[in-house]
């Protein structure tokens, strides 16, 4: 009995310490008012005045403010758009790679897997900086294209949305490849043969058998990319331009440029609420997959 209790308690404690407590703190700040203080908001809990006096000073002003300034909902929408498009792009690039890996001779697979994971061994920030070097007007890409004569004027890629998409697809590709690869590797080759035997061409066997049987992998990969990209901050601020609007960037600016912690916290709380939907859907998908495997 005691043991079972401990087993169940551990993940809940974990959740409490690493998610619920920070969330409550952020939520509390989002209900506060900005102030020239340290930390820059008010009220603070004071034992002398008591809990009721403290609670009575909290309000939803900041959330109302989010609806009034169109910057915020535009940023949310734009983030959503960028997240959706880049998830699709990552899928388009990642699926063929996962497919090729799963079809490669088995002695090659471990090596290919290593190559996919290898970028994680260097700092994410350094890799994004490297992309700046590649994509800038005098960067490697433009130099190469000019040298081959494909273009005569350097392309402006850095500080545009294109650069953001490139950066996101590059960064999140492994999250797409790995679950799809896992699904494809389990796929029994003889199912494809059976489909062909029953009159499918290679292509229709792919559509009718391979795709449906890797569906859970595709869904998992899409969520694993979509969820973090929605709040992404580093890539849009380093590779994006002034017109790249993403909620992560707005959040950062509210916190550190404006030092408006309450509004920034409100932005974060709304973002979290938005993310709950895809996270729940993702969990469902994982559960369904586990059931199917039993």
């Amino acid at each position: 009995m005691m043991r079972r209790f401990t087993l169940i308690a551990v993940p809940y404690l974990w959740l409490l310490a690493l998610f619920l407590v920070p969330f409550v703190i952020v939520f509390k700040i989002s209900l506060s008012d900005v102030a020239l203080a340290r930390p820059p908001y008010t009220p603070h809990f004071d034992w002398a005045t008591g809990i009721w006096a403290f609670l009575s000073e909290l309000d939803f002003e900041n959330f109302v403010f989010l609806t009034q300034d169109d910057l915020y909902w535009k940023a949310y929408l734009s983030s959503l758009k960028i997240a959706v498009i880049s998830t699709l792009l990552t899928l388009l690039v990642g699926y063929p790679m996962a497919y090729a890996m799963a079809r490669a001779p088995s002695e090659w697979r471990a090596t290919l897997m290593m190559l996919v994971i290898l970028p994680f061994w260097t700092s994410f920030l350094i890799r994004v900086y490297a992309w700046m070097g590649i994509l800038s007007n005098e960067g490697f890409l433009n130099q190469f294209l000019l040298w081959t004569g494909v273009i005569s004027e350097p392309l402006t890629i850095l500080n545009t949305n294109t650069a953001v998409y490139i950066g996101i697809v590059y960064t999140y590709l492994p999250f797409m490849i790995l679950p799809i690869y896992a699904a494809l590797e389990r796929l029994d080759e003889s199912l494809i043969e059976a489909a062909e035997d029953l009159g499918c061409s290679r292509l229709s066997a792919f559509w009718l058998v391979t795709i449906p049987l890797s569906k859970t992998g595709i869904i998992a990969g899409c969520f694993l990319v979509f969820i973090p990209v929605l709040g992404e901050f580093v890539i849009p601020s380093l590779l994006g331009g002034s017109d790249t609007l993403m909620i992560g960037k707005v959040l950062w600016e509210e916190f550190f440029s404006n030092r408006d912690w309450p509004v920034a916290s409100a932005v974060a709380v709304v973002l979290l609420l938005l993310l709950i939907i895809p996270i729940v859907l993702f969990q469902r998908n994982q559960q369904k997959q586990q059931e199917a495997e039993q």
Binding site: D188, S190, A194, E196, D197, V209, L213
Partner: peptide
């Protein structure tokens, strides 16, 4: 001649039923 163009059908030893 590819398998899908042959007038043959095979029952697989492993059955190869489509799980989905």
């Amino acid at each position: 001649v590819p398998p899908n163009k042959r007038a043959t059908n095979m029952m697989f030893q492993s059955y190869a039923l489509f799980p989905h």
